[in-house]
Design a protein around this nucleic acid. Structure first.
Length: 261
DNA sequence: ATGGCGACCATAGGTCGA
């Protein structure tokens, strides 16, 4: 089963690129972030024509997450638990073929320090608690999305330029590490322990051409799903096309026959 | 230190992303 996470930076601006990608890679599951579309402006017909079902949580202007699946999935959760006043559309969970899939768009948090950084750290604490619940339920699960976290120095082209950035600050990395310590596996790093892997290159200064990137899109596997990990990677070629998102699709290949019972 | 790009919206420049 091929599971992809892809921050599209506007679902409607990226629709042609997305449909092309679905056709050539034929993923089973695609978690999308930054739809930048209200609920009723999601291009459902085009997604269905491409052969996918969709569950999504839109929002005007900003944020928005969706999960596309080959066959119908069951929605488990919409919105990250733990704060009833949080109105940002950043989290959705579905059950699909015995797997729990959480699609998330973690807050950016800049500028740091400040209220946006506080919101980010609070959101990460809520994610940690939700992660604990999922592990306690013992369901094979994957947390997939744009985490807006650079986990280590090897995940950024020039670490010294990012020390004060909300994506790389010690508090952010520590919060991500707490999630990992619960038992979640960073699938890309597990498959490629020493490689330089980036998933985002900004639009400025020819960042993609210079490979000045960062690794912030992640797929974290629960213990029962870890034996099923076959391969993982980044479809960098998508970032090199016309009118791209600033993120590239990032994926894991799972062998569901090897999921722990 | 700033701005560069691309997307959003009370469609013009301000705001946001990372």
């Amino acid at each position: 089963m091929l599971v992809v996470t892809y921050n599209v930076n506007s679902i409607n601006s990226r629709l042609d690129a997305l449909v092309q990608y679905l056709g050539e890679r034929a993923p089973d599951v695609v978690c999308l972030q930054e739809l930048k579309a209200p609920q009723d402006k999601f291009p459902l017909q085009a997604i269905q024509d491409a052969g996918y079902h969709a569950l999504w949580h839109g929002q005007k202007s900003w944020n928005g997450v969706a999960i596309l699946t080959r066959e119908p999935a069951q929605e488990v959760q919409r919105g990250l638990p733990g704060d009833d006043t949080d109105e940002q559309s950043r989290y959705i969970e579905v059950a699909y073929k015995g797997i729990l899939i959480a699609g998330l768009y973690l807050p950016n948090g800049n500028p740091a320090p400040g209220p946006k950084f506080d919101y980010k750290l609070a959101w990460m604490e809520r994610l940690r608690l939700r992660g604990l619940e999922l592990l306690a339920q013992g369901i094979p699960a994957v947390l997939a999305g744009d985490f807006n976290v650079i986990p280590t120095e090897r995940d950024v082209y020039k670490p010294e330029r990012w020390v004060d950035d909300a994506l790389f600050r010690p508090e952010t990395r520590a919060a991500f590490e707490r999630l990992i310590e619960q038992g979640w596996l960073d699938a890309l790093r597990a498959v490629h322990p020493d490689a330089t892997i980036y998933t985002f290159w900004d639009y400025f200064r020819n960042a993609f051409g210079r490979d000045a990137g960062i690794r912030i899109d992640h797929l974290l596997l629960s213990p029962k799903l870890q034996p099923a990990l076959k391969d993982a990677g980044v479809d960098k070629f998508v970032r090199g096309r016309e009118k791209p998102s600033d993120h590239a699709p990032t994926w894991v290949e799972l062998d569901l026959a090897k999921v722990t019972a």
